[in-house]
Design a protein around this nucleic acid. Structure first.
Lengths: 170, 170
DNA sequence: TTGGAAAGTCAACAAGGCTGACATAAAATT
DNA sequence: AATTTTATGTCAGCCTTGTTGACTTTCCAA
């Protein structure tokens, strides 16, 4: 490969020419950045002997209060057995409340208790602060590009769920 | 917070003003995108009954051929027991070769065999394709911003290791 | 009223993290 | 030369978080 000089230019058809080297850097940046992204929450969670799975559950329950278990399963992309284990400990510990549905009594609607909200706040404060710092360091134009690439990288199906969530909570 | 209209503008001191809502979207985009990012390799790996841990090892051995176990440990951020388990299977299966160091005979230098390179290619082809598609969808300016935010999001220590790696392989 | 969806539970298992303890060889230091 | 430190590997055991499969209970809807 003798294309070291090509630095992501626009081709005739509007196609991006990217070297394998540039793509590899993007891939590694994603790997390392994800570690940074989860580092603060992981540290906090270990104080409560919870893990990332608890964080995710707490995050999305806070995000969409009253959501059903099935909704949560679809968003998190795990089995109900896996989610149930996490959800059970959160309910036992009084962070999440599970209310039987009024219209459909088979459904359980999930809510954070005050204690749950407190943990959610602690976690999201840390994570937002990290994100804010990264945004600040990279500048406003970079933020746009960051979001655009991430959204293009999602599975189409996930992107759909993501957008549904965006709408339903606005 | 009543700042729904503020869409990431530049303040007086060159500070970015970002709403919690905007930051939350970035956080969720990161979560969903990472799933997309690992989806293709995960699928491929399951055909060989390997996991992400094997992928990471193969990636960085390919990236820096002849690297030592200790180097790899520092980059991957896991315990030697954890890495060793993965490395042992890769060596047994003939994907990785471990050579005793010439200068320091305590060290083991790691290389991919042809078989190892074949798997690495299969994995990185898929991942590069996904990355390329995301870049293409987002456009050339977005690519810059994407990388800038990711690099700012890494732990400083990880960033250092990342850059060291960048230099040593160029 | 009966089929099927939603939810939960139990059991068993695997990957991939972790800690702690210990062994060996070789380099570095005293 | 003796001692300590470093690099690596290995055994044992534990935890979290994912998986599959089987089964039950509840209850909506055709």
């Amino acid at each position: 490969m003798v294309d070291g000089a090509m630095k992501g230019s626009l081709g005739g058809e509007g196609l991006l020419f990217l070297t394998d080297e540039q793509l590899r850097k993007g891939i590694e940046a994603m790997f390392f950045a994800y570690r940074g992204f989860t580092a603060d929450p992981d540290r906090i969670l270990s104080n409560y002997s919870y893990g990332r799975a608890h964080h995710r559950a707490v995050h999305f329950v806070n995000r969409a209060p009253g959501t059903t278990v099935n909704n949560l399963l679809a968003i998190l992309g795990v089995t109900k057995q896996s989610l149930n284990r996490v959800l059970r400990t959160l309910i036992e510990d009084g962070l999440v409340e599970s209310r039987v549905g009024t219209q459909d009594k088979r459904e359980r609607h999930l809510f954070l208790t005050e204690k749950g909200e407190a943990l959610e706040r602690e976690l999201s404060d840390a994570q937002r602060e990290r994100m804010r710092a990264a945004y600040r360091a990279a500048g406003p134009e970079a933020v746009q590009g960051f979001r655009q690439v991430l959204e293009a990288m999602m599975d189409p199906e996930l992107n759909r769920k993501f957008n549904t969530l965006k709408e339903s909570s606005s």
